[in-house]
Design a protein around this nucleic acid. Structure first.
Length: 368
DNA sequence: ACTATTTGACCCTA
DNA sequence: TAGGGTCAAATAGT
């Protein structure tokens, strides 16, 4: 059970790393493919382990796996495990909170369950928040209308809500840049909201039958924050007016899981409103020794077959009692870092990712 | 001329 | 029936 937990965390970390480093992988398709393979391999292993440890009966139930993960935590770090719970149920491969001012609020899966389970919802220590969104409306709407025009409730089934900072100078009405081009087709005053809601659809809707839409609205209590609701998948394969080529092209609905297809691209360039990782995070270069493959520009990162560097890292706090994985040696160190390091962080997941972020930044600076 | 935005009206769902 | 989402004509910008 400990090993499975470590594997889950490891998979999350890999996914997070991949996301963070996408801009640097544009010219390294081989590395990108290897990373994807590794992530798939890890989660496949997790799935097998869960099937054995929990049993198929519980696995079929979102509540079942949620309960299992909770009971499996055995740690005081409830928030990290809550995050894992949410990710497991939502199908998120990693904490989507990124370091660029974008806040993942929620992702509702069709027929899914409400993640929060309680009135409070989930809130990560650094702002990751999962907001209830009528997820209990799991049953498909009776009577499918042939009309394409008004399918409000049906569209509820797959939407992403994110909060992004609004510009605080210049044109305050600029909608948040997210890598795609949008055409505004409506604006409405919404009851109970101080600010109007704007409706956008993909610019390439006609050319590519792209059904992606988004709504942008300022928060009632925070003029400088937009709440952006994304609906539908981009099928246009044209991603961006953004200056950088870092935005991954939108993927076809049928070829990838919905959870991935629905992810709006991360903008790294929007008005320079990036939020740096928490400065109090301690930089631990040894973390890179736990990587199963080498990240470009990071001297300490090890290749898949480089098991020696793991030991050479010297940071492993895993004593004789620590879990060990024959095929995933780094997982032990990761698990230790996550659960046994005595960290005072409120969100060890965030702490861990932040550490990697900082290492990455440091390595990039050295390179330049 | 073409494209994007605005805005009042329409229509569906709850 | 109210409210939210979309349409489409009018308008503005290039």
């Amino acid at each position: 059970m400990e090993e499975t937990r470590g594997l889950i965390l490891y998979g999350c970390k890999l996914a997070k790393n991949l996301e963070e480093n996408l801009p640097n992988l544009a010219n390294q398709p081989d590395f990108f493919l290897r990373s994807c393979d590794e992530i798939i391999r890890v989660f496949s292993s997790v799935k097998e382990r869960l099937s054995h440890e929990v049993g198929h009966r519980q696995f079929d139930s979102g509540v079942g796996i949620q309960e299992w993960l909770r009971s499996a935590s055995g740690t005081s770090d409830h928030q990290a495990m809550d995050l894992l719970n949410a990710q497991a149920i939502l199908g998120q491969s990693s904490a989507y909170h990124d370091a660029h001012g974008l806040e993942f609020i929620g992702h509702e899966m069709g027929g899914g369950r409400n993640v929060e389970g309680g009135a409070e919802g989930l809130r990560g220590g650094t702002g990751t928040e999962i907001k209830p969104m009528d997820a209990l409306n799991a049953s498909p709407s009776p009577g499918t209308s042939s009309s394409q025009r008004h399918r409000r409730r049906k569209d509820e089934a797959d939407k992403i809500v994110r909060r992004v900072p609004a510009p605080q100078m210049g044109n305050l009405d600029l909608p948040p840049e997210d890598g795609y081009t949008w055409r505004k087709y409506g604006q409405k005053e919404i009851l109970g909201c101080r600010h109007p809601r704007s409706y956008y659809r993909c610019t390439h809707q006609k050319l590519y039958q792209c059904k992606a839409k988004k709504q942008v609205q300022r928060l009632n209590d925070d003029f400088y924050t937009f709440e952006v609701t994304y609906r539908g998948n981009h099928t246009c394969n044209i991603a961006s007016t953004a200056p950088s080529a870092t935005i991954p092209p939108p993927m076809e609905h049928a070829t990838i899981p919905q959870t991935t297809a629905m992810q709006p691209p991360t903008s790294h360039n929007w008005l320079s409103m990036e939020i740096k990782p928490s400065p109090e995070v301690e930089v631990t270069p040894a973390i890179f020794d736990t990587l199963p493959f080498r990240y470009p520009g990071i001297p300490g990162s090890a290749g898949p077959s480089s098991s020696s560097s793991v030991a050479a890292g010297g940071s492993s706090s895993a004593g004789p009692s620590g879990p060990r994985f024959p095929d995933y040696q780094p997982v032990a160190d990761l698990a230790d870092a996550m659960f046994n390091s005595g960290s005072t962080s409120n969100n060890s997941m965030e702490l861990f990712f932040s550490s990697i972020d900082e290492n990455w930044d440091t390595a990039e600076q050295k390179k330049n």
